[in-house]
Nucleic acid binder design. Structure first.
Ligand code: NAD
Ligand code: NAD
Lengths: 214, 214
DNA sequence: GTTTGGTTGTTACAAAAATAACAATGTTAA
DNA sequence: TTAACATTGTTATTTTTGTAACAACCAAAC
């Protein structure tokens, strides 16, 4: 089947990633077919949303039998994954950076962390969970040498704009920024930012609202 | 000034948290007034969005002079923070949990992590970055005793639904779930979920799209 | 065979969020 | 004194996202 060419909605892409993860669990339990409402229950969303997402990727199930788990996993893979896989680096091998490295390691075969970068001499040329940590000065060199396309930024916040700039120069194609300082990249570089403090403050706000606490 | 009673839009709440952080930086540099386009630039959003958000919280700036940094920080504080502060716990003191504990510690005075929970005997009754780790069996007891209202879940994914259930029983009001497995809570408990693998896969998808790579 | 029921795929509608448009206003400059 | 300008606050429009409605389908039950 041909790969969809028009870009999918942001939120659909997110859900596809989750569908796949959950479908893999189902498959490992021997489940071969699944209904939209089953998928929906697992993720606390509505069956309609599931069907709509699947419609968008052009997948069609069997009436009264549901979707073929294996087929769907494969299709989502063809949509999300790049054929050859993409290489990822982590800039800033501190608490969060190391945590991410050890977590991601060996999890998704098509998306592997292949390098870390840090400025701290104590970390340079050490290996963390199988990932070599290089000095940040070698960012450009290593990214080009290893054809790294995605970078995760976990340096101290005030450093992130500078790091992002270097990453762009090195030719990185996508950035996932976990520092609370927003960075600026040209439009051809895809940028995703997430701030955990903001998330926590958001929870706090809505808890306060719900409770009517002042 | 009275606190806005109607719930603000989700995204506005997120941006308010960010406005405040950035305004605090400005204030520390001695900046007393700021224009909407200056705030916008810092966060890579549009000035209109800033003005619209500020309109929603009923703050009004001075024409041609902009917004009073100090006043705005205070107002956002009155909106986001609860008067007395909220207490937070981390369930699952593993790599990510410890990273969060050490990071959040002492960052926002109104939102403090006061306890960790784990099942691993080696972690129980140890102190991490000033935070005591209790055995999960004491979840109910400690949450009630210390009046903890928010929990961050960082246990292995398959454990998270069970943990969420216990948290709800213990009377928690808000949950921030960092495991990739979605949890189910009653509507009065505010739930926020974030999955880092999904984020990375999303970046990967859009990088692939942008590049026209197959 | 015909009806019932469960499930899909799709279209229509609603809500949330972002963007654009623009009037109002006061400051500066001519 | 008046015109030009920068900036705010608000309303209108567009885009994105989610929800609802429903026809089509086919299996099973009657
Ligand atoms: N730790 C968390 O749980 C957490 C949570 C939310 C956000 N964050 C954000 O993640 C970032 C990192 O947090 P952390 O707790 O891991 O901090 P950390 O201090 O443990 O790690 C930062 C690392 O970046 C390195 N570094 C500094 N400048 C660098 C540069 N120019 N290039 C490469 N490496 C550089 C440091 O040597 C250090 O190893 C911060 O911006 C923080 O706001 C962390
Ligand atoms: N480490 C990361 O960077 C990272 C990134 C994304 C998502 N996550 C998610 O965060 C979660 C934790 O990841 P991690 O890398 O910190 O794992 P980890 O194994 O280092 O930590 C998990 C901790 O939870 C404890 N635990 C197990 N069952 C428990 C229970 N019922 N109650 C309380 N504690 C319990 C374990 O003893 C352990 O200390 C996982 O769900 C993972 O998917 C982690």
């Amino acid at each position: 089947m041909a790969i969809t060419l028009k870009s999918l909605p942001d939120k659909t892409v997110e859900r596809l990633s989750q569908y796949r993860r959950n479908l893999l669990v189902c498959l490992s339990k021997g489940k071969q077919h699944i209904f939209s409402h089953e998928i929906a229950n697992i993720q606390n969303i509505t069956p309609v949303q599931v069907r709509r997402d699947l419609m968008l990727i052009g997948y069609t199930g069997t009436l009264r039998k549901g979707y073929d788990v294996k087929e769907l996993i494969d299709l989502i893979g063809r949509i999300l994954d790049s054929r050859t896989g993409m290489k990822v680096c982590v800039v800033g091998v501190g608490n969060l950076g190391r945590s991410l490295i050890s977590y991601f390691n060996g999890r998704r075969s098509k998306l592997s962390i292949v390098a870390g970068f840090d400025t701290n001499p104590e970390k340079v040329d050490k290996v963390y969970a199988g990932v070599h940590c290089y000095h940040s000065d070698r960012l450009n060199e290593i990214i080009k040498r290893d054809e790294i396309t995605i970078a995760i930024i976990t340096v101290p916040a005030e450093q992130s704009p500078g790091v992002a700039e270097k990453l762009v120069i090195a030719g990185i194609k996508g950035i996932l920024n976990y520092t609370p300082k927003s960075v600026n990249v040209p439009p051809q570089v895809y940028l995703e930012e997430y701030d955990m403090v903001t998330s926590l403050e958001k929870v706090s706000y809505f808890v306060k609202k719900n409770a009517g606490i002042e």
